[in-house]
Simulated assay, not measured.
Amino acid sequence: MLLITAIIASILTIIFVKLSFAVIGLRRKNKVGLGSGGHDDLERAIRAQGNFAEYVPFGLILIACLELNGAPWWFVVLPGITLIIGRLIHVKGIHEPPPNFSNRVLGMKFTFGTLITLVVLNLGWSLYGLVA
């Protein structure tokens, strides 16, 4: 069972839905059906949602692989928490007008660090499983 992955995925999905509602609200407010219509607030919301959608699936797949392959619970929980934190920091940085590049960079450092860690954990755990 993927109990830990289910919790992490649920939290991330709540964040994604909130980001999606922000885009929808700004599209209605600015009367823009496609693209950003030159509205900076809408452009930031679109990119926050898009960036989230681009990176989170890889993290969730790797987290699920660890859990399915029987890795210790903390191998699954800790990267999940750091992925959530990284994504929240990035969203905060991208939404602050003018965009707060330090938070965006920090959020991406958390995200990339988590993804790279998940790759290493998955490779290491898989090789350990093959040898043991």
Rank of each mutant, 00 (worst) to 15 (best):
I46E: 00
I46Y: 00
R47K: 15
Q49V: 09
G50T: 08
N51C: 13
F52Q: 08
F52W: 08
F52I: 06
A53G: 13
A53E: 12
E54L: 03
V56Y: 08
I61N: 10
L62V: 11
L62C: 09
C65K: 09
L66I: 11
E67H: 05
E67P: 03
L68P: 00
N69E: 08
G70C: 09
A71I: 14
P72A: 14
W74N: 15
F75I: 08
V76H: 06
V76P: 00
V77C: 12
L78V: 11
L78Q: 02
L78K: 00
I81C: 14
T82S: 15
L83D: 04
I84P: 02
G86A: 02
L88Q: 12
I89E: 00
I89H: 01
I89P: 00
H90A: 06
K92I: 06
H95S: 15
H95E: 14
E96L: 11
P98V: 03
N100Y: 10
F101V: 10
F101E: 10
S102R: 13
L106Q: 10
L106D: 04
G107A: 05
G107M: 01
F110Q: 05
T111R: 07
F112D: 08
F112E: 05
G113K: 03
G113W: 01
T114Q: 02
T114G: 03
V120I: 15
N122C: 11
N122G: 09
G124D: 05
G124K: 05
G124V: 05
L127F: 14
